[in-house]
Amino acid sequence: MDLTLHVWRQKNSKSDGHMEIVEAKDVSEHSSFLEMLDVVNENLLGQGKEPIAFDHDCREGICGACSLVINGEPHGPEYGTTTCQLHMRSFKSGQHVYIEPWRARALPVLKDLIVDRTSFDRIQQAGGFVSSNTGSPQDANALPIPKPDADKAFDAAVCIGCGACAAACKNASPMLFVAAKVSQLAILPQGKPERERRVLAMVDQMKKEGFGNCTNQYECEAACPKEISVEHIARMNREYFRAAILEEPEKQGHGGD
């Protein structure tokens, strides 16, 4: 098939970007979207033009690196699919395809279709963990976890941190991303001791990064390639209010000896 691509080109974070038209000829319907771009890039190189920069690594839908807005939709038209798993059979010959980077103030463009997502890491660093030292914790089976709880925690834990939720949201809110971690650890007994501190710190960091807040439009759920449910946002909101009420300023000072 032949396609007309409209691609966002931007030299670096300091320069302005623009849409550029690139023709993609003889695309195999069996190739993936990124393989289509590989072929386009080889052709651009042949013409002495710089290839289009885009993030990718695993190409199996699990690392969360790929990140394109395709015809206005993060990760393109297929439900529950990352860009790297999107295949060209979802497109028709002659179609115009618009390819843009994630757009949000807290996810600035670095080059072409690549954005800076370190804000996502900083949100996790603020509290997305269980404070357990490496050493000799108790035997893994000492604390049975009811299967429904384990499964629910798992459903949240599948988040790949790609950023599609924030890219899809009119408020540029990554609430689904934050909620997935808060919810996973709030459900599991291991996460309970720090649950108040965690949710407050993560939400606080999210705001500091310049992301917007959630107004329950659920665009994120529709865009999430891992089909994470907004139910986790609801759980996170409960966690947040509970924590805001419970959390007292930490007492200062050390022990007696």
């Binding site: 108790q138 976890i145 009811p146 299967k147 650890l185």
Partner: peptide
Amino acid sequence: RNIIDQCVAQGVPFARDYGGLL
């Protein structure tokens, strides 16, 4: 053997059976 203990302590959601065990 320690690895599994360590990972469970971190909140890694391994598959479990209906008795809640791994």
